[in-house]
Computed example of a mutant assay.
Amino acid sequence: EAADNSAGIHFYLDDYQFERFWNKPGLYIDKLSQFDCVLTPDFSLYQDMPLPMMMWNVYRSRLLGQMMQQLGLTVIPTVSWADERSFEFCFDGLPLNSTLSISTIGVKKSDKANQMWQRGVLKMIAKLHPKQLLVYGGQVDFIYPDGIDVVYYENDNIRRLRGL
């Protein structure tokens, strides 16, 4: 089927759905190059995950992003974190004053999840000073600092479930 190539590709999916991209990136990068931009894979970071696994998932996201960028794709980094421990490395290797992507998926589940997400957003803004944030998963109750262009994208899976 024909795809809308004037669109961006995201990896806000369950990890198993794009693990094959990590295993054989060469099979997928050519296809991905047909689109306007690609967000780096959002390998999961969980608060109960051992620190080395979190670091591994951040590394994998950065490496695939670098590979795509070196091959001429327009890459938008995805930023994710789990807790304060992950703040030590989860922002490393990301550009300053640029466009970044974050997700609000799971943030509405609990006050604790929302508070950790907000702490991460504030830390990311303080370290990376993004000019634009692409926020996947819809709006949450959060006021971004002035000067950041915030663009919201609804969660595709929720839209499909609702029949929209």
Rank of each mutant, 00 (worst) to 15 (best):
Ala2Trp: 03
Ala3Gly: 10
Asp4Pro: 10
Asp4Thr: 11
Asn5His: 12
Asn5Ser: 13
Ala7Glu: 13
His10Ser: 11
Leu13Asp: 10
Asp14Phe: 13
Asp14Glu: 13
Asp15Asn: 15
Phe18Asp: 11
Glu19Asp: 06
Trp22Lys: 05
Gly26Cys: 04
Gly26Asp: 14
Tyr28Asn: 02
Asp30Asn: 08
Leu32Asn: 13
Phe35Gln: 08
Asp36His: 06
Cys37Pro: 00
Thr40Cys: 12
Pro41Cys: 00
Tyr46Gly: 10
Gln47Leu: 02
Gln47Pro: 07
Met49Cys: 08
Leu51Asp: 12
Leu51Phe: 08
Asn57Val: 00
Val58Glu: 14
Val58Asp: 14
Tyr59Lys: 01
Tyr59Cys: 03
Arg60Lys: 05
Arg60Ile: 01
Ser61Val: 06
Leu63Trp: 06
Leu63Ile: 04
Gln66Lys: 09
Gln66Val: 00
Met67Gly: 07
Leu71Ala: 03
Gly72Met: 04
Leu73Ile: 10
Ile76Trp: 03
Pro77Cys: 07
Pro77Arg: 14
Thr78His: 03
Thr78Glu: 09
Thr78Phe: 03
Ser80Leu: 04
Ala82Glu: 03
Asp83Phe: 04
Ser86Asp: 12
Phe87Tyr: 14
Phe87Met: 11
Glu88His: 13
Glu88Met: 02
Glu88Thr: 08
Asp92Trp: 03
Gly93Arg: 03
Leu94Gly: 01
Pro95Glu: 08
Ser101Pro: 11
Ile102Phe: 02
Gly106His: 15
Val107Gly: 01
Val107His: 11
Asp111Glu: 12
Asp111Gly: 14
Lys112Val: 11
Asn114Val: 00
Gln115Cys: 01
Gln118Met: 05
Arg119Gly: 11
Val121Asp: 12
Lys123Pro: 00
Lys127Ile: 09
Lys131Arg: 15
Leu134Ile: 07
Leu134Gln: 14
Tyr136Ala: 12
Gly137Lys: 02
Asp141Phe: 10
Phe142Thr: 12
Tyr144Phe: 14
Pro145Ala: 13
Pro145Arg: 13
Ile148Leu: 10
Asn155Tyr: 08
Arg162Lys: 15
Gly163Met: 04
